[in-house]
Amino acid sequence: MKQMKQWIGVGLIAVGISLAGCTISNNVIKVEEEKRQLELPAESIEALNIFTDSGDLIVKGDEKATVIHVEADIQSKNVKPEDIIITLEKDGNNATLRSEMNTDIGFNYVDITLTVTVPAQLPIALTDGSGDIDMTNLTGKITIEDDSGDIRLTNTNGEVEIRDQSGDILIKDASALKLIEDDSGDIFMENTGGNVEIHDQSGDMVIRNHKGDVKISDQSGDMVIDTVEGNVLIENDGGGERAVQNIKGSYTSK
């Protein structure tokens, strides 16, 4: 899976930076390694907004957490540390985490993994450019706008809305799904709940053990639906094989 200005706000507790050179493969590509840490007290924060250009993002909920804690693992080549900008700021009752690069087009390399630990109940709105997303143990509302990269959600109890351009979506043990819009990539849902609408352009879809109504518009790809405690409505099915069974409510296919 894949993705500073110094933080300006009041809540900065720690920033740790270390640099070390290393080589990758037999081509002796020298890569700089850097680690950064940011923290912001979460006492008066009502929501977290995350904006990332590229790189992997891991978000973990912790019921005992009293701060928003960010760890950044960075590998780069031909990029100045000051051109890799990671900030965590308080804006009114919200917090904003940004990860972006201020570099010219050329021979450069940046690989960032952000690991964010938050109070489990904190609502999160994420806008992501590219890279994989992994979110787990969250009870607040989750909103994701993603251009590319895989998305994985596990053990979430808050309302979930996903709008994704490309990449696979895997959701397990999520009780309040509302909307999934996906242009390309497979969708896999297991042990989920909520009255959910799914708009899928291409890619296969598997839904197993869902509690709630499911409304689907699908342009292409195979579809497997097995065990739904609710109604299933397929408004559009552009092509692909379909297997539907164990529907406890109504099943309608137009």
Rank of each mutant, 00 (worst) to 15 (best):
M4L: 09
W7P: 03
G9S: 12
A14P: 06
V15Q: 04
S18E: 11
L19Q: 04
A20G: 07
G21W: 12
I24D: 06
S25K: 07
N27W: 05
K30S: 08
E32L: 14
K35M: 04
R36N: 01
Q37V: 13
Q37D: 14
Q37R: 09
Q37E: 14
L38C: 09
E43A: 10
E43G: 03
S44T: 13
S44L: 09
E46R: 08
E46I: 01
T52Y: 00
T52P: 05
G55R: 00
K60N: 15
E63G: 15
K64N: 15
V67N: 05
I68M: 02
H69W: 09
V79E: 07
E82R: 02
E82T: 07
E82V: 08
D83Y: 02
L88W: 09
L88E: 04
T96N: 12
R98M: 07
R98S: 10
E100A: 01
N102I: 08
D104Q: 15
I105D: 09
V110I: 14
D111V: 09
T113E: 13
T115P: 05
V116C: 04
P123Q: 06
I124Y: 04
A125H: 13
L126K: 09
L126N: 00
D132A: 15
I133L: 15
I133A: 07
M135T: 04
N137T: 10
L138A: 02
T139G: 05
K141I: 03
E145C: 05
L153K: 00
T156I: 13
T156V: 12
E159R: 03
D164C: 05
S166Y: 04
G167K: 00
I169K: 01
L170A: 06
L170M: 14
K172L: 01
D173R: 15
A174V: 05
L179H: 09
E181N: 12
E181F: 08
D182I: 10
D182L: 03
S184L: 11
N191F: 01
N191Q: 06
G194W: 12
I198W: 10
N209W: 00
G212N: 05
K215R: 15
K215N: 14
I216V: 15
S217H: 08
D218A: 13
Q219W: 01
M223H: 03
I225D: 04
I225V: 13
D226R: 06
V228Q: 03
E229R: 00
E229D: 13
G230A: 00
I234F: 03
I234Y: 09
E235D: 10
D237P: 07
D237E: 14
E241C: 05
E241H: 11
V244C: 01
Q245P: 07
Q245D: 13
Q245G: 06
I247S: 01
